[in-house]
């Protein structure tokens, strides 16, 4: 039992949050789609958190890897009839390979250079998605993507889709948590603290950064694949700068560098469209303003306030 008021507040908030999710899941409410969407973002934001919160690096280009996952899954399943799980795996491998190559070059950069380099990476992936029409369908995107399935079981109803996505979200958070507590995770934390000190302790700094980048790319790619299957349609806009802004807003609202931050942030911000009910233009505006306010007023986010 919690011993003080803050402890009780945490318990109550946690129970309320979980029961709201459970209620929506059981009653099959229209909010289920929004919840599923938030669950996909948990996977994406968990990867951002791994790379930035835990390893202390900077990437504004994670949408590029989500695009590889999304387009990979869409093309392989809708156009070539691959089973979804295999397509997801193949896309994630491709994302890992791209991250390995790109990471070798860009992770030598630091600070502003790394930030702008990765931002350019995201922008270029968007341009490729628009320009390479015979493969990506240009602005029109790709439709008719089948739902997720394993063997003979397909997630077809809203509730089944949500369960799969929720499972993915929990797995993502859990695996990042495990990774953070492993030997490699401690090396990551050392690099985040001070690269010189980490190197002095025998950590291979460059290798640690690249591996973390590759791991984050795989999570982002899986999130992209899930997005493709859950919605059944993708276009360049899905993986544009919008995704980066939403991801960062979620990460900072939830609390960067915390275990539950991505989960909390993704669900709080993911439900925001249901509250404001506007067009995407207004949504991004709201996300941007929320992000600025959080950065100025509460840099620790909700999970930061939680811990205090």
């Amino acid at each position: 039992m919690p011993s003080n008021i803050i402890g009780w507040a945490r318990l109550i908030a946690g129970v309320l949050g979980l029961s709201a999710v459970a209620y929506i899941a059981v009653t099959g409410n229209y909010l289920l789609t929004a919840l599923g969407f938030a669950a996909i973002y948990v996977v994406f934001v968990a990867a951002l958190n791994l790379f930035m919160g835990h390893a202390g690096q900077v990437s504004f280009g994670q949408n590029a890897f989500a695009a590889i996952g999304g387009y990979g899954s869409a093309i392989l399943t809708a156009n070539h009839g691959w089973p979804p799980m295999l397509a997801m795996l193949a896309s994630a491998l491709l994302a890992a390979l791209v991250a390995l190559v790109v990471g070798q070059a860009t992770l030598r950069l630091r600070g502003h250079y790394l930030a702008m380099g990765t931002l350019a990476l995201g922008l270029i992936s968007y341009e490729i998605a628009v320009q390479w029409e015979q493969v990506t369908g240009g602005y029109m995107g790709i439709s008719g993507i089948p739902p997720l399935s394993i063997g003979g079981f397909a997630a077809e109803t809203d509730r089944q889709v949500f369960l799969v996505l929720a499972l993915a979200a929990v797995l993502a958070c859990w695996s990042v948590w495990r990774l953070r507590r492993s030997r490699f995770g401690r090396a990551m934390g050392a690099v985040a603290g001070s690269e010189e000190a980490a190197a002095a302790l025998g950590v291979d700094v460059a290798r640690t950064k690249v591996i973390t980048f590759v791991a984050a790319a795989v999570y982002a790619s899986v999130a992209g694949s899930l997005m493709a299957h859950a919605v059944g349609y993708i276009s360049p806009e899905v993986f544009g700068l919008h995704m980066v802004v939403v991801g960062f807003t979620m990460l900072y609202v939830g609390g960067i560098g915390t275990t539950l931050g991505p989960l909390v942030g993704a669900f709080v911000i993911g439900m925001l469209p249901e509250v404001i009910r506007g067009f995407r233009d207004v949504q991004d505006l709201v996300y941007g303003v929320v992000l600025i306010l959080i950065l100025i007023r509460a840099p620790g986010g909700l999970a930061g306030a939680w811990r205090r």
Binding site: D281, L285, G288, I292, L295, P299
Partner: peptide
């Protein structure tokens, strides 16, 4: 004044870019 890290500064100015862009679009 809060001596925020360089990364936070970048993210905040990038957010300003998004806000201005979206306001212009609207």
């Amino acid at each position: 004044h809060r001596r925020a890290t360089m990364f936070v500064m970048i993210l905040a100015t990038l957010a300003v870019q998004i806000v201005v862009e979206r306001l212009t679009l609207i």
